[in-house]
Nucleic acid binder design. Structure first.
Lengths: 153, 153
DNA sequence: CTTTTCACTTTTATAATGCAAGTGATATTG
DNA sequence: CAATATCACTTGCATTATAAAAGTGAAAAG
């Protein structure tokens, strides 16, 4: 991954160059859906990202302004990664990707009730997710999750 | 790119494995936005895809059922690639990617009037694009384009 | 004080990509 | 109708990215 490819200013290409590699969106997914915030948490994902790749992607996402890195409040070994406004604006893209996959992957992990909830009131769902994530929560994990607010599984 | 990774059945991951590599979505973009249909047309894109990579991506997209390959009506050297229903269902994703990039790339090629049109009436715009592409047209190119239907530049 | 945990880095093997140059079939041109 | 150009690929090779494993230094835990 080169730092400044800039093959074109086509908006699709711009998005792909910014966060469209195999791993970047999975990191964003972990933040939005599962509330992950630290290097160690990202490493544990089912897809099995290597530590060197994870490190390079976090640098890349930070350079592009999608995430910010902050020292952990109490544990000085840890770093906390958080989404910026620019990163939070990827939520609609994640929802579309999930919607498409839920439709075409017969073995999808996506809960149908969740997909239905998003499709029934997309705009307000986006802002609910946004606010929740901004507040340190996530879609599925933790006490402060979107699904717990909606009382669904 | 391995044929069957299947690292997980997370819907985001499924989408990324199906069409989320650097080039696949650019091919789909060329079909939806510019009405490209042949190998030679895909090769001409600004981003400069290599011929071997293009060939492998077309095979991949066809195997996953996003596109179909047909012999050209009159020229027997040519093959025509068309989007399936499954491929057409990527249109909402393209729109979101473009919307995000239009917001954050100061030098974007995306016409603001187009972005505004999509955002003002998303649902009907999606079906208009869908119908147009199904009919052999595209968003920007050709006489049968979405923008000519909307009479905007 | 010793051992873990944490966020990375380094090393090395393997796989993907990019580039240039084919190839065989069909179409076009003189 | 023979020569040339076009088309959709394929092949070979150099370069780059990725994956896996082990290592590093600082801070926390026991």
């Amino acid at each position: 991954m080169k730092r400044s490819d800039n093959k074109s200013h086509c908006p699709i290409n711009f998005s792909l160059e910014t966060f469209g590699d195999s791993w970047s969106l999975l990191i964003i997914r972990d933040m939005v859906y599962f509330g992950k915030k630290t290097y160690g948490e990202f490493l544990e994902s089912d897809e099995g990202i290597s530590s060197n790749i994870l490190a390079s992607r976090l640098v890349h996402l930070e350079q592009r302004g999608l995430i910010v890195k902050k020292p952990h409040d109490t544990d000085k070994r840890k770093e906390v990664y958080l989404l910026t406004e620019k990163g939070l604006d990827l939520i609609p893209i994640l929802l579309e990707l999930a919607d498409w996959a839920a439709k075409y992957d017969s073995e999808t992990d996506a809960p149908q009730s969740w997909i239905a909830a998003v499709n029934s009131d997309r705009k307000s769902m986006i802002s609910l997710i946004r606010d929740t994530v901004k507040d340190g929560g996530s879609v599925f994990s933790g006490s402060n999750s979107v699904v717990s607010k909606l009382t669904m599984t």
